[in-house]
Write a protein that binds this DNA or RNA. Sequence first.
DNA 1: CGAATGTGTGCATAGCTATTCACTCGCCAT
DNA 2: ATGGCGAGTGAATAGCTATGCACACATTCG
Lengths: 333, 333
Amino acid sequence: MSGNWRPPSSTDVARAAGVSQSAVSRAFTPGARIAEATRARILEAAEALGYRPNLLPKILQTNRSGIVAVVVGGFYNPYFAMTLEAFSKALTAAGRQMMLVRVDSDRILDGVVDQLAGYRVDAVVSALALTSQAAADQLSKLRIPIVTLNSDLAGDWIRSVSSDNFAAGVAAARLLRERGGTRFGFVAGPADSPAQVAREAGFAHGLAELGMASAMRAGGGYDYASGARAARDLFSGGERPDALFCANDLAAFGVIDVLREDFGLGAPGEVLLVGYDNLDMAAWAPYRLTSFDQDIQAHVAAAMELLDLEAGATCVARVVPSRLVERESTLRS
Amino acid sequence: MSGNWRPPSSTDVARAAGVSQSAVSRAFTPGARIAEATRARILEAAEALGYRPNLLPKILQTNRSGIVAVVVGGFYNPYFAMTLEAFSKALTAAGRQMMLVRVDSDRILDGVVDQLAGYRVDAVVSALALTSQAAADQLSKLRIPIVTLNSDLAGDWIRSVSSDNFAAGVAAARLLRERGGTRFGFVAGPADSPAQVAREAGFAHGLAELGMASAMRAGGGYDYASGARAARDLFSGGERPDALFCANDLAAFGVIDVLREDFGLGAPGEVLLVGYDNLDMAAWAPYRLTSFDQDIQAHVAAAMELLDLEAGATCVARVVPSRLVERESTLRS
DNA sequence: CGAATGTGTGCATAGCTATTCACTCGCCAT
DNA sequence: ATGGCGAGTGAATAGCTATGCACACATTCG
């Protein structure tokens, strides 16, 4: 109604209850020294006025906002949604708020850092597949802690949580060999993703250990279309692989659909397949995909711990093991 | 390093540059009266100190934080991820920040409203399937505008954006009839979702208009498992439907997989199917599901408009038409 | 009964920025 | 020459809360 309305302040409540502003503050501060009768009167007045304590002055003094910024690159992959959900739960449980920041590629530099600093966010979690070292350096200079997921940034205020991508790659090679694979293929993710690089390196290492020829290679993205393209590339040539490790589940689904539709190769069946992320869909009937479960709970728990490390001198890195969940995609028909 | 470090303030910069605090403020305020030479000297000093203007004092005075809270119930449905992504883009483009709040059921009351009010969020967007009227009333009393998506809350500061769920239900009935359906079934979402209720009502209305018998009914959730259960229920009895309208795509996928696996009913084929949301997956080979596209861009654009309506006296509601995307699930084999 | 302890309350202040007001110059026009 | 004007700058202030300090009063103990 009125043009310049202003939410009630503690002073307004104090006036209404006939006490001082400090009394109001104490009424809302657990453990503060205040008579129960006074407290009741104040709460009543506050309720009537619709008063809620303004958090900003406290933040202004302490420079601790209780806000954690989570930076993501997009949501096309359900894995991000799962991570976001887990983070949201954990932050809420810790009494903190999540500020969600979405960036296209590395345009993060243009003002986003300024914004985050301006709001005095307590820390930044980067769930970006690719993260800009420049942005990280800026945040470091501002002494804002950063926790990266599956990334390989380094710096004073940077901590990281990763899957043991390399070990999983090795395990994938062993499993596929054990199940009877002889001609191996790797469906790659984007080249600038450290997770992709480590998974591929691990797979190559595992194959070498087993004395197998190195894998054929296709793909180059974490999305469905990229997997579909990779499958066409791999199976259009003369020498077809019979065992595939895919950089993630989403790409694996693209592979499976193309194999079935375009090449009549029913999976499970003629081609062995392993993915990564263990999405809900991996258990669905058309896929039944063997996959590495990233144990998001553990990732998030580790990240939450690292958030509050104030020292920040040494670069802390945590590695969370992935758990292999085997389904029919690694069974011969 | 030092225990109580404090980020540089405008006063620190002023001291370093040999000017007053107000000059520093003006150097960072576009269009402020300041000599170019002075400005340059200040920016240099600010850069050296790593100064970023603190946004909190301004918020403290204006009570406008630039933060919009987005409330969601979970991310299990990729549709939420798509909505979130679109909102994030729109808010960033408008120079605002997103605070993401996740609530289990209606525990939103327990402190979340207090938090949001405390941070002085400019508005709340509720993407919750089910939303608590009590929470909405609290926010209204605080004069915080709310925009709900596909909900039916009402109140002074509440605006809503919805799909034309009823019309889509009618359209689904007509399409299924046109394609040859004779025995209809409805796979329901959760009973407390207004969207579910409207879709079902529209479907029933459409069938009645066509002079068909009312639909068999099963399900009761928006998730995959609920759809799977519904399919078993519907096809275990004697009279099997041959045309299904599913409350959303996720449930439809569950239906399709069960029909194929448990009953050998290939879809597309013997059973006609229509879903809702037009997820990416609806286009994938195992599904090729006819679905209603909610036009998220339009939803978000409408919501962004409604956010800044300051008047708030009348309850504004926008309806966004859904677009039918037909695929093979509505073709007879 | 005096001192000491404890309880409850008010006063004053820090924290940082944008903005208004006032002031000083230099310059132009009358 | 002098009033007026515009540009550039500094001082002061509002905005709200938590908290340290001081004070008043009640209670208990020696």
